[in-house]
């Protein structure tokens, strides 16, 4: 039980790391969500220019690895005189990355809504943006919940990549612990379990949100 006695001394820094991991995950998920709405509305309802621009952004981001985007922002931007702290760089990289994926999931939801829904909205005098906001979005969002919940699960796992730019999140702290104690197997198994616990909690929470927002006729169980 050498491992646990050593682990105890590391608890404060592990908790701090966990805090950063969760902060990074939530910021990216939430801000990324709003950016995703912008992207998907641009793709589906924008004029030619916005359509092409938003599609381009989504394609490029989904076509390159997360880690490369992170490196480009943290190690690359100083080359054009933009220096960011590891946390800022990570937050920006993860928001950009997540927004593209969330946009793709939302797009699926939007496209599942029939054209008649918009026409019915028009027919009672709603304008285009109100029709999207009040009629299409609430339905599209419900269809996209399982995918969006998956995205949060991805995010919490991939925030560990931020250790490569020196962000002291949970994985970074574990790596520190490993290099000090040489207890590699123990600490990585232990931290793996910690990640799993948080993923379990997130899954349960999104299930609750989904149940709360449940409306007859919006069964998404087949999408899981």
């Amino acid at each position: 039980m050498m491992f646990f006695s050593k682990l105890v001394t590391y608890i404060p820094s592990l908790l701090k790391g966990l805090g950063i991991t969760l902060e990074l995950t939530l910021l990216s998920a939430i801000i990324g969500f709003f950016a995703a709405i912008f992207l998907v509305v641009g793709v589906l309802y924008g004029n030619r220019f916005f359509k092409i621009l938003c599609n381009f952004i989504i394609t490029i981001i989904r076509g390159t690895p997360m880690m490369v985007q992170l490196f480009l922002i943290y190690f690359g931007l100083p080359g054009i005189n933009i220096k960011l702290s590891p946390l800022t760089a990570a937050v920006i990289a993860f928001i950009i990355n997540s927004s593209a994926y969330q946009a793709e999931y939302l797009k699926g939801g939007f496209m599942a809504i029939s054209k008649e829904q918009i026409e019915a909205a028009y027919s009672i005098g709603l304008n285009k943006w109100d029709a999207i906001r009040l009629i299409v979005f609430p339905q599209a969002f419900r269809f996209a919940i399982p995918a969006l919940s998956n995205e949060i699960v991805y995010l919490i796992q991939y925030t560990s990549v931020a250790y490569t730019i020196g962000l002291p999140e949970l994985f970074y702290i574990s790596k520190n612990f490993a290099s000090k104690t040489y207890m590699n197997l123990e600490i990585y198994l232990f931290i793996g379990i910690i990640y799993l616990i948080f993923i379990y909690i997130i899954t349960k929470l999104t299930d609750i949100v989904e149940k709360k927002l449940y409306i007859p006729g919006f069964d998404t169980s087949h999408l899981k």
Binding site: Q157, N184, Y188, L189, G192, Y195
Partner: peptide, 21 residues
């Protein structure tokens, strides 16, 4: 469930450093 939920970096580290001994 475990493999989908564990950060891939951790799995790589378990193989490389963890089992390295």
């Amino acid at each position: 469930w475990v493999l989908k939920g564990t950060p891939p970096l951790i799995v790589i580290f378990i193989f490389y450093f963890g089992l390295g001994k």
